[in-house]
Amino acid sequence: MDDTQKFDDDEESKDRQFVNALARGLELLRCFRPGEPYLTNAELARRAGIPKATVSRLTHTLTKLGYLAYSERRGTYQLASGVLALGYALLSNMDVRQIARPAMEELAEYSQASVSIGARDRLNMVYIETCRSTANVTLRLDVGSRIPLATTAMGRALLSGLPQSERDYLMDHIRQKDEENWPRIKAGIEEAFRSYEERGFCVSAGEWQKDVHAVGVPLLGVEGERAMAFNCGGPAFLLPRERLEADIGPRLVALANKVKADLGRA
């Protein structure tokens, strides 16, 4: 079973309105990952923790509905255009992407790095918009890319701005996912909380990937929008911690405040 599936099991088990068959079908769609477009029923069953006989019925149904496509030659399934249509409908209706993009492009060029905005998906952040500078060396993460909640500036920024109960819930699941490294992860998250309280942003310097530095700021409390966060990140040699804290961090805070104000007027 994929460890992300366990994330919501405790909440789902208490919900009498929860439709298990629908959840299982959606769980299969989540099994596909970048660079792994083709999966068999057996692989899907293993990743989702669902019996193979049930998976066979679900993949048949999802294929009929246009969310999966089956290859006779390979004997595998892949995501189909129905999933893309859902994703496009979501992105096209997010006002924040259109409103934030000009300011994101300006900061990306100034920093010679990448500026992105993402939303939480279980214990990850998913990019919903990203702007890269014209620099030859920059992060190559696109819309739809997933990064960890616990060790990235974007993820820690989101955690920093959440209500205490929700934050505690997520922290507990982060701990369960990686008990061995939890003391180090917890220390980094708590440092991010302090930074956010003092300066309005938090930094991840080589904690996600050793050669990547980034600063993050949450975007919260916007009516009609879910909790999100911005980041500005790039190669460590372009974004030393001192520059992130003295220059880029405050600029990202200003960007987030401007976007929040503009969304309120939209």
Rank of each mutant, 00 (worst) to 15 (best):
S13E: 15
R16T: 15
C31P: 10
R33F: 02
G35T: 03
E36Y: 06
P37N: 05
A45S: 13
R46S: 12
R47Y: 02
I50M: 10
R57P: 12
R57H: 15
L58N: 14
L58M: 12
S71Y: 01
R74I: 03
L79S: 03
L79A: 00
V83E: 00
G87A: 02
I99R: 06
V115F: 07
V115T: 15
S116R: 07
S116T: 05
G118Q: 06
R120G: 04
D121L: 11
D121I: 13
N124P: 08
M125C: 09
S133D: 11
T134P: 08
L149G: 06
A153D: 03
A153F: 00
A157M: 07
A157L: 05
Q164K: 10
E166I: 09
Y169M: 12
I174Y: 00
K177P: 10
I189R: 03
Y196G: 06
V203S: 08
A205P: 09
W208S: 05
D211R: 06
D211K: 06
A214V: 05
V215M: 01
P218K: 04
L220R: 06
G221K: 14
M228T: 14
C232R: 11
L238E: 14
L238F: 12
R241V: 13
E242I: 06
E242N: 12
R243A: 14
L244K: 05
I248H: 00
P250S: 10
A254K: 09
L255E: 00
N257Y: 04
K260C: 05
R265L: 08
